[in-house]
Amino acid sequence: MIEFKEVSLNFDGRQILDKISFKLEEGKSLVLVGPSGEGKTSILKLISGLIKPSSGFVYVKGKDINQLSKQELLSLLKNMGMLFQKNALFDSMKVSQNMKFPMLETTDFTEEEIEKRTRYFLKEVGIDHAYDLFPAEISGGMQKRLGIARALALDPQVILYDDPTAGLDPITSRKIIDLILQLKKERASTLVTVTNDMNRAYQLADHIALVVKGELLWLDSVQKARTSDDPRVFQFLNGKTQGPLTEKL
């Protein structure tokens, strides 16, 4: 479903990713963990075609995403939902309009259908009472839920979650993850999630990968991640301040 082949990424002469490769099968959930600023979000943006790799290939559903025309890419993106780190909600639109936007712009749904789906998804994520409010008028947790609902509006096969529990209290975080898992189960979607909340990562992952200093360490299962003898993995998962990840600090 998603495959990276020798993908490198450079920004302003700085190497963010260095020849990373992995393959994620359909219906599976990959969680990317790792220190901040090491390229986890860039991997999500590479999958969605928002940025192009400096070298290497990114395949989604067997298609090299960087060889697609603008039109083909937009068609592919209709099958992909993305929750942004800071939600990226349309602040000039109400909650309901945020939900309706992708359906109005990219589908042939009738107004009735769009209304029905909007109400359904808002209810599903538990914010149907905020239908007429603006994003600035709802809490951070509700904004996150709206971001998730919007990402799901087109029934995507691939969903990318960038830090879905950032800044949320443990109870709300738990609820959001339960919601993501429930929706994944219902729709058999493929997930790629970025998070540094290890409890939530263990809860979500079929596979875990550590992104560090431009490398992607594929840790396969949660169990293997926990028992890994790689000192970088051990340091990160156990939150140690001393170790190979902090050597230069």
Binding site: L74, K78, G81, Q85, A88, F101, E105, T106, R150
Partner: peptide, 18 residues
Amino acid sequence: VTEQIDAIRCLGADPLQE
């Protein structure tokens, strides 16, 4: 900068047109 334009693209719409 708040990634709303990226979000439009990720929802399968073209921000230039929208």
